[in-house]
């Protein structure tokens, strides 16, 4: 179980994530929605500590994530795989090597440096690619693939990490609708089979409704909705995307007008 408690992140004057508390159980697919700049990406990056938090805590099955250092922190990053909007593959390396990066953290340094991987790892990488229908491109350079294909390779890399949790930061935002659907399906199937919880930020409400078992909406760094997709009424959606908070203070109203 992932537990965020009073999580806050400020960048200078801006509060990107404001006092967020959240619990996520195994098997859930939680969609984080909200306008751009509402703090979705930052929230995800606070969990694997690609971005350091200003205050608050994160724990996984009672393990305090913010106390981890060095090797333990890297082990945590391996256990909660991340998928990025821009795929973040190494474009000049071939697809299978990109997938194998998912196990590199657990293998001897010397052999990894020369890109030598055990046959069992390579077989495993091929199986992960097979499941995502990408095995035909295994020896192609990742940079030569289309966006949708690259994202499926990135999912294979994430699964190679044997993750206990997957963080997906706008995984389909730079894909066309067809590819977006295929990638969301692939992500859902792969994680449902293994019971891996997924925390996925999405800018498309429609995709979130269709693929997520629970939706969390953020506005100005705060969570303003948390519930099942059916609970998202028209009024709720209006509230989320207009940026108006329930019980809004006059100060933040003014901020909104300045921003507009």
């Amino acid at each position: 179980m992932l537990e965020l408690t009073a999580l806050t992140k400020t960048f200078g004057e801006t509060v990107a994530v404001n006092n967020v508390s959240l619990r996520i159980d195994r098997g859930e697919i939680v969609g984080v929605i909200g306008r751009s700049g509402s703090g979705k990406s930052t929230l995800l990056r606070l969990i694997n500590r690609l971005t350091p938090a200003t205050s608050g805590t994160v724990s996984w099955d009672g393990l305090p994530i913010y106390d981890l250092k060095g090797r333990d922190l890297r082990r945590w990053r391996r256990r909660c795989a991340m998928i990025f909007q821009q795929f973040n593959l190494a474009p000049r390396l071939d697809v299978i090597t990109n997938v194998l990066i998912g196990v590199v953290a657990e293998r001897p340094l010397a052999t990894s440096l020369v890109k030598h991987f055990p046959a069992t790892d390579r077989a495993r990488a091929i199986r992960e690619l097979e499941a995502l229908d990408m095995v035909h491109a295994a020896l192609q350079r990742a940079g030569t693939l289309s966006g949708g294909q690259q994202q499926r390779v990135a999912i294979a890399r994430a699964l190679m990490q044997d993750p206990e949790l997957i963080l997906a930061d706008e995984p389909v935002a730079s894909l066309d609708p067809m590819n977006a659907e295929a990638v969301m399906e692939a992500l859902k199937t792969a994680t449902r089979e293994r019971g891996i919880p997924v925390l996925v930020s999405l800018h498309s409400l429609e995709i979130a409704r269709r693929h997520c078992s629970r939706i969390v909406a953020m506005s100005k760094g705060r969570i303003i909705f948390d519930g099942c997709p059916s609970g998202l009424s028209h009024e709720e959606v209006e509230r989320i995307y207009s940026g108006r908070l329930a019980g809004v203070t006059i100060a933040s109203h003014n901020d909104l007008e300045v921003a507009a």
């Binding site: 890297r74 795989a81 593959l89 190494a90 090597t97 990490q161």
Partner: peptide, 21 residues
């Protein structure tokens, strides 16, 4: 920095971040 971050998120040590990212 994208590929480097992608490798870092896989829990890889800084030296291997350089190597693969």
């Amino acid at each position: 920095p994208g590929p480097v971050e992608g490798v870092r998120a896989a829990g890889v040590s800084p030296l291997l971040e350089l190597r693969f990212g």
